[in-house]
Design a protein around this nucleic acid. Structure first.
Lengths: 276, 276
DNA sequence: CAAATTACGTAACATAAGATACAGCGCTCC
DNA sequence: GGAGCGCTGTATCTTATGTTACGTAATTTG
């Protein structure tokens, strides 16, 4: 079974004429980057003419050059998104037993998620959430609503005016009237994206509410209205998508906000304690 | 020092207008592949127009789009040649910030949690949950209730008689009357352990209910009554404990139960779809 | 050794890509 | 509430990219 283009090439390189073989070797030499460049660049890199390159990709079975490039990009995307295959996880060496591939995938998802997330982004979002000028609303979809609850439960302790929007759509909608420019709406929405959330986010956006979106790597349509977008990896060997990466980001944010509000928050926590 | 384009983007994303920010977010979401496609593809992926993409790359300091793509390719080439540096340097190398320790601690927690958890234990619990002789109840504490909800939301799809116990203590207590030997109660309880949960678990235990307990490494007193105990690591450099490890265990279990119920579950899911 | 076939490059072509000009709109700031 | 500014999208244009046709050179075969 031939799965990658590299394999396909080495499979057929024996039957190729000289010029095309040079093209093949050049591509393999620093795969797959040469293939992502233009035909002209590829051809000069290989020291052959453009038509030779085109005949080369035609021989591989592609209809035209763009199709060939798309295939390479897809392959690259698959590689970049699941480093699992190559990353011989150094941190869990003494693991003779087949520990859950689920765990491995989840750990990879988290690393990947944070790789695409800079400290600055997180700090910006934390600052926004810590800024006590307005209210904070949290809402989630079918499976992600618990994440919204989790975050709300923590934030509500360290600062006032934190509200989790639960229940029926009509209930949230009525809360829109309380929402304005100074407020923040945290939305969790992963595939399959929910129409109701989109409608709600749009209306909130129209009212000037700043939206922080937690979504998956394919980006919920709500990204359109969001001030900040956090794209978490969700792919795991299961029938369900994993929200674990988003959960960790949420915890990280909770920690960051807590740190920023330390002074004020500490007093608040003392006050809360004394209320019990 | 700004070394990668991803950093450059997150550095300037704050100063960008809405449309360009969407472009930036889309690119970061699956970096760098979107940037290697054509302007048209990039623009539709981001939901903006082509000129916005071009303005975006111009703002990053590139003369034109091809120059931008070349830069991305160079970066990718460097990455592909030394896969080791990928996981290390990542998108946030200069990590004076407090983000990475949080992630590292969380990842360690998960590894530790699973190290103390055998495949057999997980399989046993999954089997118990998949066994459709009785009902499944889920309940959680102040911060862990969302985990119970999350698990309930998934289990309820693949099998009947799954109930999340929410709201006031008196409400759960009344549900005890429906619970018996054939039933399973999943409890989430981490420090500071809640009296109310303990009381409830004890009564359920007296009625012969099988208890599956998610707790921290210090073990909630409910462990005394539990048939299965999952002890997750919770320590992170934050004012709060982390429930992330328990979350991942929960997801793993959801996956395992789903697999066991595959045949029956698939039919059930089809039936559900047809109800919409 | 000669003839035919295949491979390769040059050059012209068509197409699709990136770039630009401009107008409308929304937003912010008086 | 009004004026100004800045952002965004549509439509147009230009560039350069991929593609094809054709002639020449190399290679193989009878």
């Amino acid at each position: 079974m031939i799965s990658s283009i590299a394999e396909l090439i080495s499979d057929r390189i024996g039957t190729m004429p000289a010029g095309e073989r040079r093209a093949a070797q050049t591509l393999i030499a620093n795969y797959p980057l040469t293939g992502l460049k233009t035909v002209a660049e590829f051809s000069t890199a290989a020291g052959v003419s453009s038509p030779t390159i085109l005949r080369f990709v035609a021989r591989l079975g592609f209809q035209n050059y763009p199709e060939f490039q798309s295939a390479l990009q897809d392959e690259l995307a698959a590689q970049l998104q699941s480093p699992a295959s190559r990353t011989l996880n150094s941190a869990s060496p003494a693991n003779g037993g087949a520990v859950s591939p689920m765990l491995e995938a989840t750990l990879d998802n988290m690393r990947e998620t944070f790789r695409h997330l800079t400290d600055k982004q997180l700090a910006d979002i934390a600052a926004r959430l810590a800024e006590r000028r307005g209210k904070t609303f949290l809402i989630g979809g079918r499976f992600t609503d618990p994440l919204a609850r989790y975050m709300a439960a923590h934030l509500a302790i360290i600062q006032p005016d934190v509200y989790h929007l639960a229940g029926q759509e009509s209930i949230w909608r009525d809360r829109l009237i309380d929402m304005g420019k100074r407020d923040v709406l945290v939305v969790f929405d992963i595939r399959r994206y929910q129409e109701s959330l989109l409608r709600f986010a749009e209306k909130a956006h129209q009212r000037g509410v700043q939206i922080v979106l937690f979504t998956d790597q394919w980006l919920s349509p709500i990204a359109r209205f969001a001030r900040h977008v956090i794209a978490g990896r969700t792919a795991v060997p299961s029938a369900w998508d994993s929200s674990a990466a988003l959960f960790v980001v949420a915890e990280t944010l909770i920690g960051a906000v807590t740190r920023q509000l330390e002074a004020a928050g500490a007093k608040r926590i003392r006050d809360l304690e004394s209320l019990r």
